[in-house]
Design a protein around this nucleic acid. Structure first.
Length: 760
DNA sequence: AACAACGGGCTTTTT
DNA sequence: GCCCGTTGTT
């Protein structure tokens, strides 16, 4: 009955905090979710209307689970009116309600990354720019960065720094692309992922009545995973909380792993500035992991400079040491770990679902898939190509999208000739050109050739008109017809179902099944919606679908499987036995992270997240050589292994004492004294001998490079290409160089890590 | 307009 | 090594 008794002292005081700003710094496995859910339950028990509570989570799944748990604690229908979800889904809803104020249709389309890149590519082509220089991915990242920092196209154009950066990276036209991209999205009635936050900001800025409404609706605001919010999200929260200041943020700076997409750890640090009288709660007792795991994780994260002081501890038993497994190849790594899982399962009577294999990049899953399949061990891969990103799924959804919003040009382009209906490239080109000339959407042109004459042959026009008629008939029903019925009608009357059914190749069969699965999903969605109100339409389904990820698409049947996923995907999860694989320099830490301390520290936090997923045992593995880019490359073990206090490690199949290189340090005496003498005091000490060893082979060369490097030198970098040294700072080990690379802009490089060649 | 063959780029991570 | 997109062929 009294849920407060299920909490420890520090959890309880945090839960009992009702009014005023508060921040919870929650170490890994410290019961963060429990505090969040119980605090909401506590608010409700204290008479706060669920209508007035906003809780923002990082994933849809987290929101769903939290809602269920709250429902269990408070019972009844109390939890129904909570506003709970990801930033993107919550504000997408709010935007739909208020779209007119922004000049958007309420059924605006949400462009996913693919749509965005495709549109950018079109624009780059239309501008006659070289898409080797203006790569859609890079352009997208640049625009995304701007939006997440609330820089409008106009502000972008007027920002001399940004313009200078773009010039230096040989992309002076970027501001024009951004402008056009924003205009085209608007014309298409589409928002991309970043727009959902950006336009929310615009809305709250320009519509005082809307701001006022939500400020008073959301009297209590809770934000989970606060360390992974970006500036745009930060401002939304700040504005909404401005009246009541009942804001509760929960996070762990040590688990911030999304800065690459604009997340800003400083939001945590700035919290005290915005709310000087805030209350800080720290959850430091770990309930998840063995003491060995907790201590090992602590010993690694200490290498990071940027962190909030925090002492994670546990009363859990000591547990087993962390196994370090050395393999010759990536395939062997797969075999060894698959066998290990099989053995452990047999010996300890475990389930498959007790195991997880975590890796840095999705590409690594292959070797494990193969070996697990050979041993007949069931597994499930999370991530990779999401269900909703499969071609056949996107195709069918594109029909839904187009029916809901005919101006959605990305959807139109996708399906105008799929299934094949004889509308070819030249025809589409003509129509597109005409649309640009008349300054209307493609749909406007093709739905009214008398008004917008196009120079294409009559048969082509007929085919297009047939297509248009079809879409129009769907459009007529999309707001009213039951979702499942219309979806099925579309799937069959467009010929998609038949097209896939006729394909008897294994892939074709899977595609057909996927479509059936999507239809089943729509059915389930309808049933769920009908519990609340009236008929669910496809239009309703579309509101959700763009923001679904495959974590939201879990098949319930047969859940006893080994989990394979990236470390990013594992955030928030826990498993009894965890294998963190591919611990090699240039893979984990990623090569791309080695140029700056900030990036390297993020990799280290990622490693911290990986290790702290485990309850009972952790094993770390690496391969001496592995296939990458189709080539065999040899690698050294990751620095992260060496950064763990060796007291917590156990090295399997150590290398023989053959006077090799860095691996010798693994044959450490277990005796503490001699350990101290050899390696010095943790954690700082490990670095020095490590680096000396790493540089052994090329020490001379590198020393020369470092000493001779002067401001103004032209240098070459393995990844960034040629560049010019702007300035040098620091001494000894820590010499850093600001180097300007035409390809990527200014980079600060730690010379110790960056292999710079002086040229000319 | 449809299909086959070739070439390039890619591997961080995702709402 | 694979996937995607572009090019060339019919």
């Amino acid at each position: 009955m009294d849920f407060l008794e299920e909490l420890n002292e520090s959890q309880r005081v945090a839960v009992e905090h009702i009014d005023g700003p508060m921040m919870v710094i929650a170490g890994a496995g410290s019961g963060k979710t429990r505090v969040l859910t119980y605090r909401i339950a506590h608010l409700l028990k204290n008479g706060i209307d669920s209508f007035n509570i906003l809780a923002l989570t990082f994933t849809n799944k987290a929101a769903r689970e939290m809602k269920e748990r709250i429902h269990k604690v408070v019972g009844g229908t109390e939890a129904k009116n909570l506003t709970m979800g990801t930033f993107h889904s919550v504000f997408a809803r709010i935007l739909r309600h208020n779209a007119d104020k922004l000049g958007y249709p309420s059924n605006f389309t949400i462009y996913d990354t693919q749509d965005s890149k495709s549109l950018l590519k079109t624009i780059i082509k239309e501008f006659g720019l070289d898409d080797k220089i203006y790569k859609p991915g890079i352009v997208y990242a640049r625009i995304s960065g701007a939006k997440n920092n609330l820089i409008s196209p106009k502000a972008y154009e007027n920002n001399t720094n940004i313009i200078a950066e773009d010039r230096m990276s040989r992309k002076p036209e970027l501001y024009r692309i951004y402008k056009e991209y924003a205009a085209r999205c608007f014309k298409a009635g589409a928002m991309d992922f970043d727009d959902l936050l950006y336009q929310t900001n615009v809305l709250l800025r320009d519509s005082p009545d809307v701001l006022h409404y939500y400020q008073h609706k959301f009297q209590y605001i809770l934000v989970d995973e606060y360390q992974d919010t970006n500036y745009s999200q930060y401002i939304i929260i700040k504005k909404l909380a401005a009246v009541y200041e009942n804001i509760c943020v929960v996070g762990d700076d040590a688990q911030s792993i999304y800065s690459f997409r604009g997340a800003n750890v400083e939001n945590i640090l700035n919290f005290r500035k915005d709310y000087p009288d805030f209350k800080l709660y720290k959850l430091e007792q770990n309930y998840r992991s063995s003491n060995t795991i907790v201590q090992a994780a602590n010993s690694v994260i200490e290498f990071n400079k940027d962190r909030i002081k925090k002492e994670v501890w546990t009363l859990n038993s000591e547990g087993e040491r962390i196994n370090v497994i050395r393999c010759m190849t990536d395939n062997e790594e797969g075999r060894v770990i698959s066998n290990r899982i099989f053995q452990m399962k047999q010996q300890k009577g475990l389930d498959f679902k007790d195991f997880a294999i975590l890796y840095r990049t999705n590409a690594q899953s292959r070797a494990f898939e193969e070996s697990l399949r050979k041993l007949n061990l069931p597994y499930k891969i999370y991530g990779g190509l999401s269900f909703y990103q499969r071609k056949e799924i996107k195709d069918l959804i594109a029909y839904f999208r187009l029916a809901a919003n005919p101006k959605d040009e990305e959807a139109l382009k996708r399906i105008i000739n799929y299934p094949k209906r004889g509308i070819g490239k030249t025809t589409i080109d003509f129509v597109t050109l005409a649309a640009r000339q008349y300054d209307v959407s493609i749909w406007d042109v093709i739905s009214d050739f008398t008004r917008y004459p196009v120079n294409i042959r009559v048969p082509a026009q007929r085919k297009i008109t047939d297509f248009v008629t079809k879409i129009q008939s769907y459009s007529a029903q999309i707001e009213t017809a039951p979702a499942y019925d219309l979806a099925e009608t579309i799937a069959s009357s467009t010929g998609i179902l038949k097209d896939l059914y006729d394909d008897k190749s294994p892939e074709g069969v899977v595609r057909y099944e996927n479509i059936q699965e999507l239809l089943a999903g729509i059915k389930a969605f309808s049933v769920q919606q009908e519990e609340n109100d009236e008929v669910a339409t496809l239009s309703d389904f579309l509101v959700d679908v763009a923001l679904l990820t495959d974590a939201d698409h879990e098949d319930e049947e047969d859940n006893d499987r080994i989990s394979l996923m990236t470390i990013h995907a594992s955030k928030g999860l826990e498993f009894p036995h965890v294998f963190v694989v591919g611990l090699e320099e240039n893979l984990f830490p990623s090569q791309l992270s080695l140029t700056s301390r900030e990036d390297l520290e993020e990799e280290r936090r990622l490693f911290y997240v990986a290790v702290t997923r485990a309850k009972e045992t952790v094993a770390l593995s690496y391969a001496i050589s592995r296939f990458r880019y189709g080539q065999l490359v040899t690698s050294e073990p990751s620095r992260f292994i060496e950064e763990i206090n060796p007291d917590f490690l156990h090295f399997e199949n150590e290398r023989k004492q053959t006077g090799g290189r860095s691996m010798n340090s693994y044959n450490r005496p277990t005796n503490q004294e001699s350990l101290q003498g050899k390696i010095g005091v943790a954690p700082k000490r490990n670095l020095v001998p490590l680096n000396q060893m790493k540089n052994k082979g090329s020490a001379d060369k590198e020393a020369i490079i470092n000493e001779n490097l002067k401001v103004g030198h032209n240098v070459e970098h393995g990844r960034f290409g040629k560049g010019k040294v702007l300035s040098l700072t620091g001494e000894g080990q820590d010499v850093k160089a600001d180097v300007f690379f035409p390809s990527v802009g200014k980079k600060t490089l730690i010379l110790r890590f960056a292999k710079l060649k002086i040229i000319g």
